[in-house]
Amino acid sequence: MGGGENMSLAVETEKLVKVYGNGKTMVKALDGIDMKVPKASVFGLFGPNGSGKTTLISILVGLLLPTSGSAKVLGFDVTRESVEIRRRVGLLPEGFGFYDHMTALENLVFLATLDGVPSSQREKRALEALEAVGLKDRADAKVSTFSRGMKQRLGVAQSLLKDPELLIFDEPTVGIDPEGAAEFRNLVRKMNRDGKTILLSTHLLYEVGMICTHAAIIREGRLLVQGSVDELYRSVREAKGFRYEIRVKPGSDMPLQEIRSIPSVIEIAQSDNRVTVLSKNDIGSILFSLVTKNPYKDIVESLTPVEPSWEEIYRFYQEGG
C-alpha cells in the first residue's frame, strides 16, 4: 500500500539504474539517480538531449521498469503500484499524439473514461480542462485541424483530467512558439499556486530559471546537482563569487574607493552608468548601507545582486561543482 514514508516528497528515487540492451549494445541510461521532488514545488529536471530525462520520467509513471534501485511517487512504488501512480499523476509525455479524426472534446472524454472519471462528470471535466488551456472554443474541432501549439495545450489539458496531485511534463515547450511557451509557463505557475506539484523536464536552461522553484541537472544518466533554485544560485555564488550591479545616474561619477576597501571584494568593473562588483562573500548589506548614505545616495539609482545565469550554473556543475 502506498502512503509513503516521507510525506513531504512527491517523488523520491534511490540509486535508480536503467540499462538498455545487453552485451556490446548495452547503454546505461540512468546511473544511480537519487532524486527528491518536494511537494508543491515546480521542479525542473534539466539536461541535454539523451541525458536520461525521458527514461527517468517513464520509470516514474511505470512505463519502464528500472534495472535496479527504487522509486516512489506520491508514496507508491513504481514497480508494484504503477496503476495507483497513474491514477494520481497527470503526464504529458514527449512525442505524444491524439486521435486526429476525433474532436478535442471526444479525445478528452475518452481519456477521462480511462482515467476513471465518473460518466456524469466526464464532459464537464473535459471542458474545464480545455478552458484551463484556452481551448474551450475549439472543443468541437477535430484535432487534425489543430496547430502544434494547440496540440501541446491539448496535451496539457489531458493531463489535468483526473485532477492530479502531481503533473509531469516531458519537454513541454518543444516546438511551440514563444507566445505559447509563455502561456504554458503562466499555466504552470497557476497550477502550482493551486497546490499542485509539477515536475518538468527540459533542455532549455532559461525555462528552469523562469518557472522552477527547485531544479536538478542530469547528465549522462547521473544527477549532477539538485535543490531549490535559491540553493543552486547560492552554491554557485559561494564558489564563483557574489556579483552586484550598481546603477548610477547618467553623467555621474561614481567614487569607488570605499567599495574597494571592503576586504572580500575581488573585482570592480565600471562601464557607462553601471558598476559591477564581484565579492568572495555576500556583501549585499554592506553595499546597501554604503549606497544609502552620502556621497552615493544622490547618484545611485539601484543596487541589485546579480544571480548567476543558468548557463553558468550548468557549466559550474558540469565541471564538477
Partner: peptide, 8 residues
C-alpha cells in the same frame, strides 16, 4: 503514450 499514461 497517452493511453499508457492512464491508470490502466
Amino acid at each position: 503514450r497517452i493511453l499508457l499514461s492512464r491508470p490502466i
